[in-house]
Structure formats: structure tokens, C-alpha cells
């Protein structure tokens, strides 16, 4: 029965209307928009789902790790409500100002402390900064193989079989555990927590660890361990200039659209 670890991130809902999106250019930070809730990053929910499908088939234990701050209990515990077993929250001022590298380092150190694992799952990228580096970074710090952008993961004869999405299809890759896998949206919809799951999540173990708890080297953490520097953050300017093609009725408007495309020589 495999021990599995899933790394997840709490972010502002990426499905919020783009119109509500604002940044503070001086602070190089995204401003929280009113009414936009916190969620588990969607690709990370799919990583949880990938682990749960293996647990459904083979049993095992799933430990969820999240690095962040201002955790919202009901949000970050969603993987437990979906069926994961334990959770570790990494919360410490020393983690702040991190880039992908120092985030991967902290998560790798936490994974070492968790100890036994066969498969580590991450989302292919967090749906806020969209970098897609942390999963690969964890594998590099742990010295284990990784397979990225998976759409299906199974255990076959003691090996992990991964369908990895490539440009015009997918590759089937076999690898012996321990392995790190990043999961893509092609895996399909993650399950909704059932009421029973939500109730049992309340009693599942949740630990909070600091930098000291994971025996991390302070020079590798947060801003100190970061190599990438964000110099500027801005929202690209858009000119609203859409010409709405009218008509007596929708059919008429459709025909007029065709005439318009001919008029501007697009067809």
C-alpha cells in the first residue's frame, strides 16, 4: 500500500472575472479583489484526485502538504474532505519572499521529515504565478525521478505507469518509485467532497511546521534562497473596441457578421 504525498497551494480563485483583477505596481503584488474567495489551486486538486484514485485501487495513505500563509481552514482542508488522510501546513515568516526554488526546497525538506513515500504528486503549475517549476524542483532536491504533465497515473506491477501529455498525444512512461509526478487538467474533474468526508476531515490530523521543524537551512529559504527577481508587475492595457454586429434577430445578425467579414476582406 503506497504512501503518497500531495503538495497543494491556496490561491485566490483563478476563475474570478478578469475585470476584477488589480495589481499594486509599486509593491509588485496582486490586490485581493472583494468577493473573490480562496481556493485550492485547480491543478493541485487534480493532483489530490490522482492520489485518491490510486488509494481507491490499492489503499495507502495520503499526506497533503501546503506552504503558505493566511490559510483558510475550510479551503485548505478540502483535500482531507475529498479523502486524504493527514495534512501538514508550512507557515513561517522565513518562507516569505520565496521563488520557485526556495519554495521547492522548503517542500522537499518537509517531505523528508514526513519520511516514507512512494509517489509525490503536485499540480503541473499553480494557477496564480503559472511557473510550473516547484514540482520538478522538489524532485531535484530529493534526487528522485519525475514525470511531468500527467493525465493518468496507475500502479502496475510495483511500477508507476504515467500517461504524460505531449504536443500531439501522450507517452506512456514506467518508473519505479519513489517518483514525483505533476498532474495536468486532462486527468479530469476532481471529486466533490461528500458530507461524510467533510465531517471526518474535522478530526483528521493537521500539523503546522515552521522552518525549524523541517531543519531547513535559512540561507536556502524564502527571499534568501530566491534566485529569480520580480522587477515589475502590471496589467496589460486593453482597448475596448468591439463592434457589435446587430440584426433584426440572431439569424440576421449572423448573416450580417458574414457580410462584415467580407467587407473587411477577411474572407
Amino acid at each position: 500500500m503506497p504512501n503518497m504525498i500531495v503538495c497543494v497551494k491556496q490561491i485566490a480563485d483563478p476563475e474570478a472575472p478578469p475585470g476584477s483583477f488589480r495589481v499594486d505596481e509599486a509593491a509588485k503584488k496582486v490586490l485581493p479583489a472583494s468577493g473573490v474567495s480562496q481556493v485550492v489551486s485547480p491543478f493541485d486538486e487534480q493532483a489530490v484526485e490522482a492520489a485518491l484514485r490510486i488509494k481507491d485501487a490499492h489503499g495507502g495513505k495520503i499526506t497533503v502538504i501546503s506552504l503558505g500563509k493566511d490559510f483558510v481552514g475550510d479551503v485548505i482542508k478540502k483535500p482531507l474532505a475529498m479523502g486524504a488522510d493527514e495534512m501538514v501546513l508550512l507557515e513561517d515568516a522565513a518562507f516569505e519572499g520565496a521563488d520557485s526554488r526556495s519554495t521547492a526546497y522548503a517542500l522537499a525538506m518537509a517531505i523528508k521529515k514526513v519520511g516514507e513515500y512512494e509517489v509525490i504528486f503536485c499540480g503541473r503549475q499553480a494557477a496564480d504565478w503559472d511557473a510550473g517549476q516547484v514540482g520538478s524542483g522538489i524532485a531535484e532536491f530529493l534526487g528522485i525521478p519525475s514525470v511531468t504533465v500527467a493525465k493518468n497515473v496507475e500502479l502496475v506491477d510495483g511500477k508507476v505507469r504515467v500517461e504524460r501529455v505531449v504536443t500531439d498525444g501522450y507517452e506512456v512512461v514506467d518508473v519505479s518509485p519513489p517518483v514525483l509526478i505533476t498532474v495536468s487538467n486532462e486527468l479530469g474533474e476532481p471529486r466533490y467532497p461528500k458530507l461524510k468526508g467533510i465531517m471526518s476531515a474535522k478530526t483528521k490530523p493537521v500539523a503546522t511546521w515552521t522552518a525549524q521543524d523541517i531543519s531547513a537551512d535559512a540561507s536556502q529559504l524564502g527571499a534568501a534562497g530566491a534566485r529569480a527577481k520580480l522587477l515589475k508587475l502590471f496589467v496589460p492595457v486593453k482597448e475596448a473596441k468591439c463592434e457589435i454586429i446587430e440584426g433584426e434577430n440572431p439569424e440576421d445578425a449572423g448573416a450580417n457578421l458574414a457580410l462584415k467579414l467580407r467587407e473587411i476582406k477577411l474572407i
Binding site: 472575472p17 486593453k238 468591439c242 463592434e243 457589435i244 440572431p250 440576421d252 450580417n256 457578421l257
Partner: peptide, 24 residues
């Protein structure tokens, strides 16, 4: 949001707009 990006648009049910568009 697509109308913030588009040059031309039709506001309407595609099931009605599209066949007439294709026909024309």
C-alpha cells in the same frame, strides 16, 4: 470577457447565429 478582446461580435444564441452566418 471575450467581447473585451474581440474586434467584432454578435450577441446571441450561437445555435441561431451560426447557421445563418455559415449560410451567408
Amino acid at each position: 470577457n471575450i467581447f473585451r478582446e474581440a474586434q467584432f461580435g454578435v450577441v446571441g444564441d450561437y445555435k441561431k447565429v451560426l447557421p445563418a452566418f455559415a449560410e451567408k
